[in-house]
Design a protein around this nucleic acid. Structure first.
Lengths: 263, 263
DNA sequence: GCTGTGATTATGTCTATACATATTCACCCG
DNA sequence: CGGGTGAATATGTATAGACATAATCACAGC
């Protein structure tokens, strides 16, 4: 693009966009070799470090592949790693203009020596806290949360009252973690789940299981069950700097060609 | 000085990891100001450009915020960004030791001038191809795929026979894209969806809608509907360089404390 | 013909320097 | 006392050169 007539952009950025444009437009095809840094440095009339900065950025983004001695090549797209935004539930609800609340349903202190399930989830860590609660938007339950917390690692949470702040937010603000894993799937609501969520048994739900570690120790394991349609996860891959405006314009749901979902 | 310790990683990478570790572990908290490039350059005993490379990388990743004259600050996290692996379905099935196959159910050529739904999904792009097909593992259907393809951008796909390669894989191998977005949710199977997937209407399904762009143009929009339990997405945040071995050991499912799901 | 080895080459990293740019801070003037 | 102005400061960009590293290519020797 570079709609700016002046050289508003730094040089390495213009070089990057120039090459990126050639890849996107198909002038450069996957597997093609692009000129060496020395050649590009002559072509753009700049130092090699400047060319290097542009090419390195494109390589980091996966558009180029660089091999020593061989040269720089347009990458062949393979499996893709996208960035998944995992928002705080309270913030997400508030951002939609609704009132968020968390209601604690149950709270128990257990021990991995007696509680085999907790031991399977957190490892043999000793005392654990088991929480069950509901996430509400405008007073309506949309997600059920079941959580295990390693009390040896987070003793300060034992006396906390979660009426003002849900446990996830409390942990996020108080306990740093070094690793986390989300598993995302779908399930049919059990009878008990359906009852507290106000839906029917067997109804579709989105299930997210999140585990966090601090170094080698498990901090918490949480399973959140969302009523279908109440929550959506968005993962992106694209130019640095966030989502283009186009995406929101194209957000109309794709209606099923098979199921003319009449309801 | 520049004591070349025999570390495998380059210096700017070690500096980056050092600072990143302090942020993630909480030693550096959101809003904290970190030392200036001049101070860090003295502390690490290197040139400013080396420190700059490390800090710029962290700023690009959103972990730091840099303001001229003011300094460099730990960014306040809005959402937690995790890395979501989006594997090729065929590879994923094969990796589990099953036989993968794709069966094309329907194929139509349409036009956004007449097909308002296609126009809503891809924009006013002219001719489009609409595909419907099934993904099979060991001969059993586990996912339904409904796809729209912008033929103006991908004319070469029009004569392709998808008996050997599903359309997603074909596109991945032939068409580079610059942006992609996944939306992940749950839904109840419609009557028609249930029929082709061999499940009952209303059964829980995991729904993934993926859009890809090349520059400003839509390439394809695809909606995949997975039978609940047949497919799981995994997103991670952790030390750079892949998944720790521990995760596979901790993969035991967390049984619901509420719903003693007897089936 | 095959293999190993060394020269060649392109990228990777790092340094030292210079100037540009944006903000903040302190000071001076009205 | 308030506001404008210039100096100080931290980052942003760019350069030129140096050495490191890895992969390839060509050639010599078996």
């Amino acid at each position: 693009m570079t709609a700016k007539g002046f050289s508003a952009l730094p040089l390495h950025e213009r070089i990057r966009q120039d090459i990126e444009t050639r890849i996107i437009s198909g002038t450069l095809r996957p597997g093609d070799r692009i000129p060496s840094e020395l050649e590009l440095m002559a072509r753009y009339g700049c130092a090699r470090m400047t060319v290097n900065k542009a090419l390195s950025a494109l390589a980091t983004r996966g558009l180029l592949e660089r091999r020593k001695r061989a040269g720089t090549f347009v990458a062949r797209p393979r499996t893709v790693a996208m960035v998944l935004d995992v928002p705080d539930l309270g913030s997400a609800v508030t951002a939609r203009g609704q009132v968020y609340a968390f209601r604690l349903l149950d709270r128990q202190i257990s021990d991995t020596a007696r509680d085999r399930q907790a031991a399977a989830d957190l490892g043999d860590v000793g005392r654990v806290m088991r929480l069950t609660g509901l996430h509400l938007a405008d007073g309506v339950a949309f997600a059920l949360e079941e959580r295990l917390i390693n009390l040896a690692l987070v003793p300060a949470i034992e006396p906390v009252d979660f009426s003002t702040e849900p446990p996830g937010t409390w942990l996020l603000r108080h306990i740093p973690w070094t690793e986390a894993e989300n598993r995302i799937g779908a399930l049919a609501a059990s009878r008990a789940q359906a009852k507290v969520l106000g839906i029917s048994p067997g109804d579709a739900c989105l299930a997210i299981e999140r585990r966090t570690w601090r170094g080698a120790d498990s901090v918490t394991v949480v399973r959140q069950t969302f009523v279908a349609g109440s929550h959506e996860l968005v993962a992106r891959f694209g130019p640095a700097g966030g989502s283009p405006a186009r995406i929101s314009a194209a957000a109309a749901a794709m209606t099923s060609a098979i199921g003319t979902s009449s309801a």
